[in-house]
Design a protein around this nucleic acid. Structure first.
Length: 489
RNA sequence: GGCCCUAUCGUCUAGUGGUUAGGACACAAGGUUUUCAUCCUUGAAGCCGGAGUUCGAUUCUCCGUAGGGUCACCA
């Protein structure tokens, strides 16, 4: 085999965010697919920063983007911290390249400065709007193209006005009418290139073979193609990803309506592997019944042919379920650390609390949660709003237990307090056995249900022995007394 | 408004010119459990509509409908 054969090209993909704030689900999913495809094919994955709009730039974004990807285990071969043979991965550091190609186009007569003022352009656009026609700059192209001195925006003179048809690896043959090609701006008056121009040059110089991006770019692809044509660059392979929709499917998930910073999921206790697993399955699936995929599994299974055409909704409940699967699969040490971090601070201060105690309860605690915030249920102390003291008692509690009113539970709670005062709190079992005889005589539900609610203040919580064991005897008895006082009122 | 894209349970999806249209989340019922959860069993739930092609369309074609995207010196 001839290694110089150009047809055996190394696969290169890139993720190219602009540093305008945090990363959200949509961007991450794009990055993930580009990453998976590169890794699957022993290719190269580039993280490129598209910072050509200095007005929209948000300080710290580049670090934030890198931190987000790193958290998720998406690593890059070249990035802002790691230039390649092609130079920097930050567009603002690549201006000479853009200028070089811009000048080439000027020399070829395929680019010219825009002589109009912003007001003039605005009036053209307004007029087109009134006539319900799409605005096309090329209808106003000046007759005599002036030389470019760099102070005016540089526009492409489209090489050919025609209907473009191209191949997309996901959507198949795509096409767009000639009103979609126009004399678009290549270099802005501030000297920075537009996205339209810069990304094409970068992709060319970086050897990018596959461009993965959202379907909002389909309509502008003819504009891109006309730039490739003007420059004489070959087309890369276009891979259009389906949009991620809001939960209610009414629109694309975006920052403006509900899309959170991906790092918020980290602080809420979602595990990176769960996040990746969940995101990979929006818009892609390998045609099997498998639901849980490690990142290596995903790399192994990933295929462009299995990418979905239609948009998919972001379903938080399935994310919770996925996270739980990963929680259950953690090692004992990881579980301990996870629970420990998630416990309310005050719990760590209870006199009887210790890591040893916590360790014994890990399986019980992990089993009932999906994500960190649920750990706290039942462990915070304080002025609980006891459901059984409220007028909603019947609707909220009666369906679970058969006390017709909270007052009826009062004597049992008082009895329990006496028993617990003498109880041995060294294990959950010793606590349980202190109450067992009484509970069997009286009815387990009649004793344990009010006890659990007294301790946790909640309808749902860990079992009473777990809570008692963690918070200790003193706090346990204090909580029950507080509950009794409230019922008595 | 022009142009473009998309369409299987509520949600993520599998699948086929002939299938009892499969799985998962969520939901419901039952069992285990002192609650919730976990676990096990079961259930309900879907091919957007209309033509055409065909012996036969959820699947192919066309037309609707609905949803989404795009028409920047933003990416």
């Amino acid at each position: 085999m001839d290694l110089k054969d150009k047809s055996i090209k190394k696969i290169v993909t890139r993720f190219a965010p602009s540093p305008t704030g945090f990363m959200h689900i949509g961007g991450i999913r794009t990055a993930l697919f580009a990453f998976l495809f590169a890794r699957k094919n022993n290719g190269t994955f580039i993280l490129r920063i598209e910072d050509t709009d200095k007005d929209r730039e948000v300080a710290g974004s580049i670090e934030h983007i890198q931190e987000s990807l790193t958290w998720l285990g998406i690593d890059w071969d070249y990035g802002p911290n790691k230039p390649g043979d092609f130079g920097s991965c930050i567009q603002s550091e690549r201006l000479p390249s853009y200028l070089k190609y811009a000048k080439q186009l000027v020399e070829k007569g395929l680019a010219y400065p825009d002589p109009y003022t912003a007001e003039e352009i605005a009036s053209f656009r307004e007029k087109a709007g009134e006539e319900k026609r799409p605005f096309l700059y090329r209808n106003h192209r000046p007759k005599n193209l002036l030389p470019w001195d760099g102070t005016k925006p540089l526009r492409l003179k489209v090489p050919e006005i025609k209907r473009y048809t191209w191949q997309d690896a996901v959507r198949g043959e795509l096409t767009a009418g000639e009103e979609m090609v126009d004399d678009i701006i290549l270099i802005k008056s501030d000297g920075y290139p537009t996205y339209n121009f810069a990304h094409i040059i970068d992709d060319y110089e970086m050897g990018v073979t596959h461009i993965m991006r959202g379907d909002e770019f389909i309509s502008s692809t003819p504009k891109f193609l006309s730039i490739y044509d003007a420059l004489g660059f070959p087309y890369p392979i276009f891979v259009t990803l389906p949009p991620i929709l809001r939960d209610d499917r009414t629109k694309k998930l975006g920052k403006r309506d509900g899309a959170k910073d991906i790092l918020e999921y980290r602080s809420e206790g979602y595990l990176p592997e769960a996040m990746i697993n969940f995101l990979a399955l929006i818009g892609w699936n390998p045609s099997t019944d498998q639901e849980i995929f490690s990142t290596p599994d995903l790399i192994e299974a990933f295929e462009i042919a299995k990418i979905q055409k239609a948009g998919g909704a972001f379903n938080e409940e399935k994310l919770l379920w996925t996270n739980k699967q990963y929680l259950l699969a953690m090692s004992d040490e990881q579980k301990l650390k996870y629970i420990h971090t998630a416990l309310p601070k005050e719990v760590l201060d209870y006199p009887q609390f210790s890591e040893e105690r916590l360790k014994k309860l890990i399986p019980t605690l992990i089993e009932r949660i999906h994500v960190a915030r649920e750990v706290a249920d039942g462990f915070e102390s304080g002025e609980f709003d006891f459901a059984f003291t409220t007028p909603n008692y019947e609707t909220e509690l009666l369906k679970w237990k058969n006390d017709p009113s909270s007052e009826e539970a009062l004597p049992r709670l008082e009895k329990v307090t006496q028993l617990l005062a003498k109880a041995d709190f060294s294990t959950t079992d010793t606590i349980k056995s202190a109450l067992w005889t009484y509970a069997e005589e009286t009815g387990k539900g009649k004793v344990f249900w009010p006890l659990r609610v007294a301790l946790s203040g909640k309808i749902q919580s860990p079992d009473p022995f777990t809570i008692a064991y963690i918070v200790g005897k003193e706090e346990t008895i204090q909580r029950i007394k507080l509950a009794c006082d409230k019922i008595g009122k």
